[in-house]
Every structure is written in structure tokens, then in C-alpha cells.
């Protein structure tokens, strides 16, 4: 991104040291590579979440592995696993406590649509109570699918209009 440095010219002090770019883009670039996550881990998908975040698959490469267990400090809510009706108000409350800008990833089939559980206890997808940005398919999704989801979210963040005031 930054071109090689030219010798300093006092007549033209900004030459070679400044690039111009829309503010939205640079903010999006900063935001997408410093995602603090809130892992709301409930069920089986947590096993794959553990795999993804440890050394083998290394989510840290994407700048999106740092878990913050306070919703107020986090940007991305990962809903990892089945959400039952008993749990739904709590997920909603965690989401409400997060500060803007915030994104939600529905990790796995259960969080996306209820998965194999179509019964009295299980919510049919978390998008019935909160807005979801990325759905990751799979029961549970393979780590590669999770990484793909993270990259897609980063692309989405980069391309979206940045709210910053």
C-alpha cells in the first residue's frame, strides 16, 4: 500500500509519504482486521470453534480471534450452537449490550435455522430475534468453512458504509 520512500524534499514535503483514499475505506480496513469477538458458545459447534481458534487453523491470522467476554468491548457476536427458547432472551440481551458497530455470525446449522432440532424447545434460527450478517453452514461447520465465513464478513465490513460519528 505504501510506495517505497523517496528522499525527503523540503519543497514538496508530502511527496511519496501520503496516500489519498476515501475515509470510509481506511476505516473499513482498520475495522475488518481488528475484530474483537464475543463467543457465545452453547453446544457442539464449540468444539469446532476451539479447533479454529487454536494453533492448527489459527483464526488469529485474520485478526479475528481475540475473545472479549464483555459484550461492551466486542464487535462480533459469534452465536456458536443451538439456541433454545430459554436462552433466547439472554442472547438478545448480550446483543443489545454490544456497542455499534456490531456484527453477528450464526455459526452452524442450529444458529442459522434450527438445524436438526425442529421441536418445542429450540429456536428456529437466531435471526428470529436478532439481525445476522453471516450464516456459516454445517453441523458443525468445518474449520475451513468458518475461516471462509470470517473472510466474507471482513469483505462485507470493508464494502459497507462506515458509520463513525
Amino acid at each position: 500500500m505504501i510506495p517505497s520512500r523517496s528522499p525527503f524534499d523540503p519543497q514538496n514535503p508530502l511527496e511519496g509519504r501520503v496516500i489519498t483514499t476515501p475515509f470510509d475505506k481506511v476505516l473499513g480496513w482498520a475495522r475488518k482486521y481488528s475484530l474483537f469477538v464475543y463467543p457465545f458458545v452453547t453446544a457442539c459447534c464449540g468444539m469446532e470453534y476451539m479447533s479454529v481458534s487454536s494453533a492448527h487453523y489459527d483464526l488469529d491470522r485474520f485478526g479475528a480471534a481475540f475473545p472479549r467476554f464483555s459484550p461492551r468491548q466486542s464487535d462480533v457476536l459469534w452465536v456458536v450452537g443451538t439456541v433454545s427458547h430459554k436462552l433466547a432472551p439472554l442472547v438478545r440481551r448480550v446483543y443489545d449490550q454490544m456497542t455499534d458497530p456490531k456484527w453477528v455470525i450464526a455459526f452452524g446449522a442450529c444458529a442459522s435455522c434450527g438445524g436438526p432440532y425442529d421441536n418445542y424447545a429450540t429456536m428456529q434460527g437466531i435471526d428470529t430475534v436478532l439481525p445476522v450478517d453471516i450464516y456459516i453452514a454445517g453441523c458443525p461447520p468445518r474449520p475451513e468453512a468458518v475461516l471462509d465465513g470470517v473472510v466474507k464478513l471482513q469483505k462485507m465490513i470493508q464494502e459497507s458504509k462506515q458509520v463513525w460519528k
Binding site: H85, K86, P89, D118, N119, Y120, M123, T128
Partner: peptide
């Protein structure tokens, strides 16, 4: 009591949501 046979499998009683 949901495991009784006369309780329909998909009769939901959500706390929030639709």
C-alpha cells in the same frame, strides 16, 4: 409437560420472538 405423548412436538412457547 413436553415429553407426554399428547404434547405436539413443535408446540413452541417462546419467551421472546415470533
Amino acid at each position: 409437560h413436553p415429553l407426554r405423548k399428547d404434547y405436539p412436538k413443535t408446540k413452541r412457547q417462546p419467551l421472546i420472538g415470533p
